[in-house]
Simulated scan of single mutants.
Amino acid sequence: MTADTTQAQPAQAELAAAHPGWTIWRSNTGRWYATRKAPITMAEGNTGCVRTVHAVDPEGLAEELDKQELRAQRAAPA
């Protein structure tokens, strides 16, 4: 395990705890990804929800996940 991998583990655990509906991972190129555990509904797709998001760092991924969660809330029935 490299120092870079060891440093990524706490960030990955934090993201996973904050966004339990997503699977979080870091690629071997260093980019961060998250994929929804559940399929997207048509209403969610219409609001811009996607199955997988990515970013260059954990902070950017957290921002993308927050955006996705807001879009999903807009798609939820009132």
Rank of each mutant, 00 (worst) to 15 (best):
E69K: 06
C49Y: 06
D57F: 04
D57Q: 02
A3D: 10
P77C: 05
T23A: 11
Q12K: 12
W32P: 01
A13R: 14
E59S: 10
G30I: 04
K37I: 13
T23C: 06
T23N: 12
G45Q: 13
W25H: 09
A78K: 15
Q68K: 04
I40K: 09
P77H: 07
A11H: 11
T29R: 13
V50E: 01
P39I: 03
T41L: 04
L65K: 02
E44M: 08
R71I: 11
V53K: 03
E59D: 12
N28T: 13
W22N: 11
G60Y: 02
K67M: 10
P39N: 08
A17Q: 12
T52N: 04
T52G: 04
Q73H: 11
A3T: 07
S27F: 05
N28C: 03
E44T: 00
A18V: 00
E64Q: 15
L15C: 00
C49G: 10
N46T: 14
V50C: 00
M42W: 14
N46Q: 15
L65R: 02
D66T: 15
I24S: 06
H54P: 00
A62S: 12
T52R: 10
A13T: 12
T35K: 13
A43T: 03
E59T: 12
T29F: 08
P20H: 06
I24R: 01
M42H: 15
E64L: 10
L61D: 04
A34S: 09
P58D: 01
W32S: 01
W32F: 01
P77F: 06
A75E: 06
A34P: 04
E14G: 11
Q73S: 13
